[in-house]
Design a protein around this nucleic acid. Structure first.
Lengths: 223, 223
DNA sequence: GATTTGAGTTAACAAACGTTAACGAGTGTT
DNA sequence: AACACTCGTTAACGTTTGTTAACTCAAATC
């Protein structure tokens, strides 16, 4: 399993180090930055999963930093750390697009729980993915096209999901057959073709989407 | 006040003894087991409040033990002790349903804090849990939707409870049938379907909640 | 250009699931 | 004891889903 990557911006070196180490023992990957500028740079280069930002920092404070980052990424969860406990600040933090707020001093448990909470929320949010003009909700097995809902069966949803994982590249028959059916004999192969056919029908409303066959190899979902 | 009952599984007798004594001075009741088999037996007979399991043990390692215990009791907190610090192990521990992880060497303070943390969490665990716009009170067999109370029968509540334990993932028919009915023959299967039907009806007020069937496998509760 | 092979589509079928209603065991009430 | 009530199971029937089969079409090979 991939480690969760955290960017931690905390100017007090000692405190930052403690947080970093605690998180690392809990199996996070932590990039510790000592000021806002550094954090911004590491954000663009590092592709973190979550940001933990001290509010009061030299060069660029947590709020300014968060504002800039929100312009670059609307999704990434941001948790603020602060020693000031004023209401005004909390409000400011949320209005900027922060997702949570932790008052110093806090326990490591608390921070970890909140990080997990944010990531969980974020994962659940991204349930649907764009498929041309459609929205595809894998869990709900639902395609949405301009208010219209098209229900997918379990197999259809699974197949489409795998095609989307490999969008614009060839997905081999045997790979998908083994993953979804567990075997790739003659009949299963024919069965898969039937499902491809069904998916094409359900995806007809956006003509830019196509499931192209690559004879002898498999299928390619393009859009 | 009742003492907190801990089952400690630790094959190093000396270390186990130290932990046992330290916990006892802190007013815990400790049952020290030297291997996994013994711990499993003491678990079934002893009704402990929490389990502290060494990962590496003779006869039955901590992970296997935890897996078996989780099948018997989905609630009880499990803390693993380990000398290995590999990532894979931590992940495995949590995926099995472990609640915390302590790397050797650790201080007694640390262990005690974590035990209290787990027990607190377990106690605070609200009676009712959120299910979309509903509140579900398992013990009272009650669904609440905007002041309106919908009564559930025992079986309905049990079924819903298990579905919620596996929310957003497929819950296999046989698993639920064996847990709730004790068998998974044809008639029990049909019976379960009837209850699914009843639950769907009672969950209709929040359309984001769905019990989706996965043909040949089981059901998936999504929301 | 004929032949072979893989893929597309449709229809038929079987199995799994959904729903309703009837039944009966258990419980409490009069 | 007779009655009403609730709950879980069984039965029956309708619907959905996945597989198989048959036929058609298109691509590759010779």
């Amino acid at each position: 399993m991939k480690k969760i990557k955290v960017i931690l911006a905390e100017d007090e070196a000692a405190l930052g180090q403690i947080i970093k180490e605690s998180l690392e023992t809990r199996d996070f990957e932590v990039i510790h930055c000592l000021d806002g500028e550094e954090a911004l740079e590491k954000f663009t280069s590092g592709k973190p999963d979550i940001l933990v930002l001290d509010v009061m920092m030299p060069l660029k404070d947590g709020f300014s930093l968060a504002t800039e980052i929100r312009n670059l990424d609307e999704q990434i969860p941001i948790i603020f750390l602060t020693s000031k406990s004023q209401t005004a600040d909390v409000v400011k933090g949320f209005s900027i697009g922060g997702n949570d707020y932790l008052k110093k001093p806090f326990s490591m448990e608390e921070l970890i729980v909140r990080i997990h909470a944010q990531l969980r929320k974020n994962n659940q949010k991204k349930e649907t993915s764009k498929l041309g003009k459609y929205d595809f909700d894998y869990k709900k097995q639902l395609l949405t096209f301009e208010e219209e809902e098209i229900h997918l069966t379990h197999r259809e949803a699974e197949l489409l999901y795998h095609l989307m994982l490999h969008k614009n590249e060839i997905l081999e028959r045997s790979e998908i057959l083994n993953k979804l059916w567990g075997t790739d004999d003659f009949f299963t192969t024919r069965s898969m073709d039937v499902f491809i056919s069904k998916l094409r029908k359900k995806l007809k409303k956006d003509t830019t989407i196509q499931i192209i066959n690559v004879r002898g190899f498999g299928y390619k979902l393009i859009f």
